[in-house]
Design a protein around this nucleic acid. Sequence first.
DNA 1: TTCTATGATTCGGG
DNA 2: CCCGAATCATAGAA
Length: 357
Amino acid sequence: MDEQPRLMHSHGVGMAGHPGLAQHMQDGTAGTDGEGRKQDIGDILQQIMTITDQSLDEAQARKHALNCHRMKPALFNVLCEIKEKTVLSIRGAQEEEPPDPQLMRLDNMLLAEGVAGPEKGGGSAAAAAAAAATGGVGADNSAEHSDYRAKLTQIRQIYHTELEKYEQACNEFTTHVMNLLREQSRTRPISPKEIERMVGIIHRKFSSIQMQLKQSTCEAVMILRSRFLDARRKRRNFNKQATEILNEYFYSHLSNPYPSEEAKEELAKKCSITVSQVTRINKVSNWFGNKRIRYKKNIGKFQEEANMYAARTAVTATSVSAHGSQANSPSTPNSAGDCSEGKRSLLSYSDFATVLD
DNA sequence: TTCTATGATTCGGG
DNA sequence: CCCGAATCATAGAA
């Protein structure tokens, strides 16, 4: 049983691939001129058929021998002819497909998040977007920002190294395949278009891998973003200084505790509320909204605080004298009928300050 | 843990 | 859009 394969290999011309062909060649009628040529062709075919069974060096040598064979041009022509007949069916399959909408979406998202696109600008743009999307106060907030930015940078780096790796691998592979095809084109007919098509297939394959990378990068960014936004939901109290500044304004404008847009901006600046302008004004507005409602709800509870700030304002006003803050200027005289005596006394203080001013 | 203070959000009204 | 009001959710104190 195991004698036969050994025998075949020892001949160097295995017939495993095409026993029938070999048989036919051997059974052919002997003696004629055509017989010799047939035998010749049979040899070539056998060599081609079995070339993959051999070791690399062996195959290389045999390939060279085949290339130099006197029958090679004829065989090449035959292959060309066969190809000519079959190639049309392949052509139809190649169509320029439109750019994948999903890929475009991913690209846009990555660009918007600052993962793709220019290194520096992308990062700050993302940070700005994050800043706009979130709120926060001064120092502790910027720590969150830098954390977010650091993570985003990390993601960007991974993304770019991976992308580069894929691109390099793709190029390497393409070059390799092209070399191989060029090499093969000496023994079998390969048109440049076919090479092009092959390259296209490779690129498509690699771009589908890239899409996976983009997809998971997007996912990572989304997760990071949602975590960051979750962190935003965690309320951060204003620091003591900010609260004092806001309270100062509130109690010195008790008759009309409705800061204008400019006043809000000014207060936000003083309190070092460092987010986008819109957001920080909102934060000041929130504070005043809460303060007004809570003060009104329970004036008694705020009495002490009110007196304290009123006193402070008065002292400031007195000491500063003529240079009192411009902010201290209640535009409307007290209109609230239910005002407590605390409020009244406050009013007199702030009025005092205004008068001094 | 519970309780309170407080920033944020939501909703209806003007 | 801004307001008051109610409500939510969490930070920080007890």
